[in-house]
């Protein structure tokens, strides 16, 4: 071994050597470390004792090495004691963290239960509110539907009444233009009809609508009668119109050389307005005669036996010549 290495080793091994007679350790510190590292403390004390012996023999170099060893043993004891403290602290912390983790898991479960409970409550309430809203909507729809139905029906009747009234007014005007007599109190009756229409629209009532329609129909029939009276003769066009109207009303009607013929039917008296619109006499055969005479007056002329097949002839309504 060369000289440098020997010097270095001597310094390293003997570093920190204390002066002769100085105490290596603090007794209190030794006592504190002894429970945690009894073997190391004992070895430190042994090294210190050897150091003292070597110094007593006057061998300072050896004494310094023993002192170094004593300090190292003491430092190892300190490290071991610190390790014991750290391990205890670590164990305590692990227990604490474990307990806190468990507690946290329990609290999270409790929170989730509460959240679920609240969610269920909200869902139930939302469902109830939704059901109530749906019920209200359905109720409103039902009311509106009923109102619409009533209004639609009333509207149809009123429209028919007004159309009839308008037509009656025109027909009556035409009759006057042909020299016929005017309809009595036509303006007042039309005004009354329009008032009825306004009242019915603001508050639909079936009876009022039916009444308005009946009044309009009566007015229309009277106007047709006046027109027929004023004409005296039926034009080919009006005859064709008469036949078409009769067929529309379900009657069997023909236009022949002798005049317009309606084949008798139980439906005829109910459709008397068709006959009112035509001028001239009405020749009736069979059982219808008396019933029509009651409705149309002197214009109806009975022919043939009472049990003959019902037949109606309008002689002034003839087919146009080709």
């Amino acid at each position: 071994m060369n000289f440098c290495l020997r010097i270095a080793l001597a310094f390293t091994l003997a570093c920190g050597g204390s002066p002769a007679g100085a105490r290596l350790f603090d007794d209190d510190a030794i006592d504190e470390l002894r429970p945690a590292a009894p073997v190391l403390v004992e070895e430190a004390e042994g090294a210190a004792s050897s150091a003292r012996d070597a110094r007593a023999r006057g061998n300072d170099a050896v004494a310094r090495e023993w002192e170094t060893l004593a300090r190292l043993k003491l430092e190892a004891a300190e490290a071991k004691a610190a390790r014991a403290e750290l391990e205890a602290r670590l164990a305590t912390l692990r227990d604490e963290v474990s307990a806190r983790s468990q507690r946290l898991a329990e609290r999270i479960a409790a929170r989730e239960a509460l959240v679920a409970e609240r969610r269920d409550t909200l869902v139930r309430r939302a469902a109830l509110e939704e059901a109530a809203r749906a019920f209200e909507t359905a109720e409103g729809d039902e009311r509106r539907r009923n109102r619409r139905r009533a209004t639609a029906l009333g509207g149809a009747r009123l429209s028919a009444a007004l159309a009839l009234a308008d037509r009656a007014e025109l027909i009556a005007a035409a009759a006057v233009a042909l020299g016929g007599a005017p309809l009595p109190s036509l303006s007042a009756r039309l005004a009354q009809l329009r008032q009825q229409e306004g009242a019915v629209r603001s508050e639909p009532r079936g009876a009022s609508e039916a009444e308005a329609l009946a009044n309009a129909q009566a007015l229309h029939v009277e106007a047709l009668q006046r027109l027929a009276d004023a004409r005296g003769e039926a034009s080919p066009a009006s005859c064709r119109t008469f036949i078409a109207m009769a067929r529309e009303r379900g009657l069997e009607a023909h236009l022949r050389d002798e005049g317009a013929v309606l084949v008798g039917s139980d439906r005829l008296p109910a459709r008397i307005a068709v006959l009112r619109s035509m001028p001239g006499p009405i020749v009736v055969q069979g059982s219808l005669a008396s019933r029509l005479r009651r409705r149309l007056g002197e214009r109806v002329q009975r022919v043939g036996a009472a049990d003959a097949s019902p037949l109606v002839l309008l002689p002034r309504c003839t087919a146009p010549r080709p």
Binding site: L13, L69, L72
Partner: peptide, 22 residues
Amino acid sequence: RAYRIAEASLDIAASRIENARL
């Protein structure tokens, strides 16, 4: 003595490393 000094030094180093881990 030198061996024991080396061993004590290593004991200290090992304890410090372990303590650092802890």
